[in-house]
């Protein structure tokens, strides 16, 4: 269980805002803090990591108190088991990929983890390169690997993919999901991109003006329309073909691609890449038993 309940007064260009956030989630969750920039999302991550001290409140992970203003507890960042991936990656420019990872190793830490991580994120051929000689996607992989060197309990990701193009983003989203599972992490993602959150997270906290205004699963938060007794799928439009007065949409749903019929008003506003929710009443399906 991760419990965050903190307040802090912040000075920003738009004036002072009072951040007061209360959020809790389970081990193994992949959660998102979602909201406009300036809402206070990054500040929350920094307080969890110990890089910024809350004015008051409490942060506890699996019953271990990391911060408690009443009891005067404030663990330094190196005592908190977190890995942090910054928006700009913050790699050391004067160190190679391998040196960046080794530098993050704690005294007495097992150096074998460095090789394991280099392998995991597929950077084997690039170990001696410097950050300036890497692409955006490769830098991001190094930053993720470095964040995992100390085998953190919590991985904090601050808009990690915002600087990358669409193809690289979706590839790295898959890799992040895989790493989350493989290392048994609890991951916290700061993002303003609903589709990214849909793909990765099981729980979302919506942040506005320094407070959690809503929380729930991605579909509860992003799909306003609530319909009973139906199948609901979220998909991405891959292609739109006109066919007489209707349209055929090719839609990627999970690993399947299906063609569905859309009428004029349903097609309105859709383009390739649009995310859609498909709803079908539960009366329709024909059911075939699969013989084993």
């Amino acid at each position: 269980m991760v419990e965050i309940d903190v307040s802090k007064r912040l000075h920003s260009a738009e004036g002072d805002i009072k951040l007061k956030v209360s959020a809790s989630f389970k081990r193994g969750d992949f959660v998102a803090f979602f909201g406009e920039s300036g809402a206070g999302k990054t500040t929350i991550l920094r307080m969890v990591a110990g890089l910024l001290k809350p004015d008051s409140g409490r942060i506890a992970v699996d019953g271990e108190v990391w911060f408690d203003s009443h009891e005067g507890v404030d663990l330094p960042p190196q005592k908190r088991e977190v890995g942090f991936v910054f928006q700009d990656y913050a790699l050391f420019p004067n160190m190679s990929v391998e040196e960046n990872l080794r530098f993050a190793l704690q005294k007495g830490g097992d150096p074998a983890i460095v090789d394991e991580l280099i392998d995991t994120v597929g950077l084997g051929a690039l170990v001696s390169r410097y950050p300036s000689a890497l692409s955006g996607g490769q830098r991001q992989r190094v930053a993720v690997a470095r964040a995992l060197v100390r085998r953190p309990k919590i991985l904090l990701l601050d808009e990690p993919l915002s600087a990358l193009d669409h193809t690289m983003r979706s590839k790295l989203q898959e890799e992040l999901a895989d790493i989350h599972r493989r290392f048994g992490l609890t991951t916290v993602l700061v993002s303003h991109d609903p589709s990214e959150i849909f793909r990765l997270c099981n729980h979302v906290f919506k942040i506005e003006d320094g407070a959690v205004i809503k929380e729930g699963s991605p579909s509860e938060l992003f799909v306003k329309e609530r319909i009973g007794s139906s199948f609901k799928f979220t998909g991405e439009v891959l292609a739109i073909e006109k066919c007489e007065m209707v349209y055929l949409l090719s839609v990627a749903i999970g690993t399947q691609i299906v063609k569905i019929m859309a009428t004029k008003n349903e097609r309105e506003g859709l383009k390739t890449g649009s995310r859609i929710q498909i709803v079908s009443k539960a009366f329709h399906p024909m059911i075939f038993k699969i013989e084993s």
Binding site: K224, E225, R226, I227, G228, S230, V279, K281, F283
Partner: peptide, 10 residues
Amino acid sequence: ANEITLMELS
């Protein structure tokens, strides 16, 4: 009747 979906007004 089974083709009709009801959704609460939002």
